[in-house]
Design a binder for these strands. Structure first.
Lengths: 357, 357
DNA sequence: TCCCTGCGGGAAAGGGCTTTCTCTGCGGTA
DNA sequence: TACCGCAGAGAAAGCCCTTTCCCGCAGGGA
């Protein structure tokens, strides 16, 4: 690889001058030398060694991002928001997938710290795991102590800047909707127990039911991977245990799509025989058939805000932005079927069309 | 940030020794010093500066990847394959999204070269653009001249190692299937004209039709963005121009999903009134309703092979691996409707179930 | 007893770049 | 004419590591 001094030699100037021309330094250089340097760069196909530059320059520019999986639409949308702001500010993003492995998350914090990122964003659910949480916080604190900025998306653990989707309120919305439609036998297709996102959404759901004097017994909940196959499998287990279910609340859209697949395979009509609710409103939700009724989270906006927090001026006190969830009515949730409706408490409401598309 | 010499000073050893302990060098260090160093590392929360390490070490380890968009399922699957092999070999991946912008692609080649990646993989369609192609090849050649390895996925332009999905054969399969079902009025929802993937798939489609003595007039093709909304829009334009269409061949699954959305909005039953074919077989294809009949490409495998090519021993001659396409019959393609079937040439075949799930 | 060997450790030379500091030479002012 | 200031270029000091090279010392063989 050609180096800067190769370029300088070829142009007959000092490395200092070559560097100034290449980086458009504020220090003036005569046009003649400039030309010679640029010609040498072109001839040698010179590309500066990024590591050497980063090492020599003091200011850090890249931003590190840790997500569970960028190819998961939930994170893809968040990342889109992160990117938008970062690109506007000429920042490079280093994105790492933890695949929901706490150890890998810890490693990535180190890795990104080692890469001298100016800021760190952790997106995705936290864990109910004290040991891990403490370790993570130590690492983050160490990073912040050296001037790094940190923001989290959807995690309670960290005590700094945060963008929090209102998972609990979203769960509440879902629960209220199903109650309003007259459902009593509601099964829940949940993500891993250890994730705070799971428990938060579940708590909201529970609250809505209990306001109606109902309960959500553990027997009506199945925990599985937070993806399509997990949803399919949990739904199957749920139906096997309790064929009388009239509604299924999935704790994210991927699981809801898996639930729909299982229901289709078993010949159960949605929403005539059984209703399904999703969570997140990922883009594909409107394209499945029937279109998914779900709880929308402003995913892109979450990314935008987190990046803005981290790239903006630091605030003396940690800022926590809670972003509201919103119910999106489409076609998978309907009134409880006639045969079982009689037992329901409140009158079923008329279904409305999708208010958003 | 604590540096290596901070650690060394604190441990009362030389930086050389500290480095050896931290990197597990083969050179032996007494247990006592080792302990002291490790203690200092822990106390100072020391993390080595990655740029300094990369600069000091000679061998390059990371691999650069340029795709159109990782969050597009097509590339997400390919990336999964790339990751698998890379992780096995302890390589870090730097993934860049070009968003189908040729200039950005060129920039990323430079960027990755600057980051001293050991190899470079470009995935995604090439462009019908001579100027760009020449520029890209120059840059790649310059990179290869300094020992870098390059492989492409699905691009004709580059003359080195390549993994090529058989787009043309896939198009042919799609065309033959539709012909076999008796369709004559076939509309095509195509990606951007400038992409070689579009023209390759189109060429296969054309060939299948012409073998049946039929044609694919330009008037039956609509070019749009290679995504869901592009597919929806192109389908609408197609139907407006020609309401008699009995089948729509979309050149990728995202577009097919958009097509389904438009058809649903217009109250056209799939496949009873109109058939739809996709391309790629991305994971969501089986979950839309009706499940998408499509042409499968071994996406993960494409990634695996490309990474293996690039990390394996270099071959004297460029290796080109062509991976076959395969038709996956699901529920969106059926025989041409009765009213129009009379005009069709060949007898409609019976539909078979999805052979894969 | 002497020499050689080998082990454990440190000194120092890069690796490729940025940037401060220094130097030269010119034009302008007193 | 002497001096000052400044523009433009280069020298050199880092940035933080890794790794080679070298040195001192202890133990073993002759």
């Amino acid at each position: 690889m050609a180096t800067l001094s190769d370029v300088a030699r070829r142009a007959g100037v000092s490395p200092a001058t070559a560097s100034r021309v290449i980086n458009g330094s504020s220090k003036p250089v005569t046009d003649e030398l400039r030309e010679r340097v640029l010609a040498a760069v072109a001839e040698l196909q010179y590309v500066p060694n990024a590591h050497a530059q980063l090492l020599a320059r003091s200011h850090r520019s890249a931003v590190g991002v840790i997500v569970h999986d960028v190819s998961d639409p939930y994170f893809a949308e968040i990342t889109r928001g992160l990117q938008r702001v970062a690109t506007d500010q000429g920042r490079l993003l280093m994105i790492c997938n933890s695949y929901r492995d706490p150890d890998r998350e810890l490693e990535y914090v180190e890795l990104l710290r080692g890469h001298q990122v100016a800021a760190l964003i952790l997106a995705g659910s936290g864990y109910h795991d004290e040991v891990f949480t403490r370790q993570l916080n130590e690492k983050l604190a160490a990073y912040e102590a050296t001037g790094g900025r940190v923001a989290v998306i959807g995690r309670h653990e960290h005590s700094g800047d945060a963008v929090m989707p209102d998972n609990r309120a979203g769960g509440y919305l879902a629960g209220r909707e199903l109650c309003g439609l007259g459902h009593r036998a509601i099964g829940v297709v949940a993500g891993p127990r250890i994730l705070t996102t799971t428990t938060d959404r579940l708590a909201g759901l529970r609250q809505a039911l209990s306001e109606q004097g109902r309960e959500l017994p553990e027997a009506r909940i199945r925990y599985a991977e937070f993806d399509r196959d997990g949803g399919a499998e949990a739904t199957a287990r749920l139906l096997d245990a309790d064929p009388e279910l009239t509604a299924i609340a999935a704790l994210n859209d991927s699981m809801a799509i898996g639930a729909l697949a299982t229901l289709r395979a078993r010949g159960l009509a949605v929403p005539q025989q059984i209703s399904v609710l999703g969570f997140d409103d990922m883009p594909i939700a409107r394209d499945v058939t029937p279109a998914l009724t779900t709880v929308r989270l402003p995913l892109v906006d979450m990314g935008v805000r987190a990046m803005s927090l981290v790239l903006g001026v630091g605030a003396p006190t940690p800022r926590v932005e809670v972003l509201p969830a919103e119910l999106v009515r489409r076609d998978t949730a309907g009134p409880v079927p006639r045969s079982t409706r009689a037992t329901a408490g409140s009158a079923p409401r008329a279904r409305r069309g999708d208010s958003t598309s």
